[in-house]
């Protein structure tokens, strides 16, 4: 066995997933299955959030337990202007990105001074602070949240009220984010981020101010998660602080780990399996959490590298036969 055998990327699996997602809406409309259409839209939107988490967690080694805060900020960026009758999608998106970058820079500046378990706890703390801030905002519905009566408007270019349009927009944004991440991780910046994950003291002695690079990466990831929140708010017509609760952040981590950390496309598969399984199991029994928990533990225990790692292992075995 060669020690550095090239990684066999499971293009077949991801290609099938892509074609499936691309072809699903017309089929589902024809079969009159709006429920599954909604489910797949959610898969796409949360895939963006999971992928953005993968950027800091998988590539940068920064385990954040507060990522849902960005998603919530993105959704409130739709809800609050809408509450005042402002429906411009450009503005919503602009606010979402600006608010998330700002929140990432301010909290990241403090979080990134710490490492390991302290980093996890402090990201959690900041996210919970934001959660309780929104819980206390009576004007915006406090813990009941805000209804969004109308989806963002893009000057007649995109009609998000049409489920198909929202679906393909989410898919386009996901593809855009993944494309951007792909460029990023192969650029100078990306190499530095990966280097920091593996050996931060060495990177410092090589002359990298690792703190600044990590902060920039954190802000980029936050902005992407904010875009996902923008789409999620539009999709659900609703936002409540619950959407930025730490359990939501935990779910995002699981989607990434389930798919495979540090692999570009894996979190999409992780998100899809996570949400589909949640639906299927909860249809069978009210005790579905028990089965679901067991499955997740099994994946982490036996499938090192998540689903991606598992598929890779199977492919290698077939190949060597």
């Amino acid at each position: 066995m060669k020690p550095s055998a090239p990684r066999r990327v499971s293009w077949g699996v991801y290609g099938t997933l892509f074609l499936f997602l691309l072809a699903a809406p017309p089929v589902l409309v024809w079969a009159d299955q709006p429920f599954y259409m909604d489910l797949l839209t959610r898969v796409l939107i949360l895939s963006i959030a999971a992928s953005s988490l993968n950027l800091i967690l998988g590539y940068g080694g920064m385990i954040s337990l507060g990522h849902a805060a960005f998603v919530g900020l993105g959704a409130y960026s739709v809800a609050i202007p809408s509450y005042y009758g402002i429906y411009s999608g450009y503005l919503h998106l602009g606010i979402a990105i600006a608010a998330c970058v700002l929140f990432a820079l301010v909290t990241g500046a403090i979080c990134l001074r710490t490492r390991g378990v302290y980093f996890i706890m402090i990201t959690l703390a900041f996210a919970q602070m934001l959660y309780f801030t929104f819980v206390s905002l009576e004007e915006y519905g406090a813990d009941d949240g805000l209804l969004i009566y109308q989806r963002s408007e893009f000057s007649g270019l995109l009609n998000l009220e049409n489920p198909g349009v929202l679906y393909y927009l989410a898919m386009g944004v996901l593809a855009g984010c993944l494309g951007l991440m792909n460029r990023l991780i192969h650029s100078r910046f990306g190499r530095v981020i990966v280097g920091i994950r593996h050996n931060e003291p060495r990177m410092q002695s090589l002359g990298y101010n690792t703190y600044r690079y990590k902060l920039a990466c954190y802000a980029i990831s936050g902005a992407m998660a904010g875009i996902s929140g923008f789409l999620l708010g539009n999709f659900t017509y609703f936002i409540s602080p619950e959407m930025m609760d730490w359990t939501r952040s935990g779910e995002l981590i699981f989607m990434v780990v389930l798919g495979g950390t540090g692999v570009l496309l894996a979190p999409v598969a992780g998100t899809a399996v996570f949400l589909l399984l949640e639906e299927i199991l909860s249809a069978f029994t009210v005790y579905w959490h028990l089965l679901f928990g067991g499955f997740l533990i099994a994946i982490v225990l036996f499938g090192r590298g998540g689903l991606h790692g598992l598929v890779e292992k199977l492919e290698r075995r077939n190949h060597s036969r």
């Binding site: 990023l184 190499r191 530095v192 990298y208």
Partner: peptide, 26 residues
């Protein structure tokens, strides 16, 4: 102290990159 999962040439490139301008190139 080197970056174990990277190849030798990638390790040295990491050093060379550090002194050839900044790395905020995305």
């Amino acid at each position: 102290s080197v970056i174990m999962p990277m190849t030798l040439v990638e390790n040295v490139m990491m050093a060379a990159q550090s002194v050839s301008g900044h790395s905020f190139r995305f």
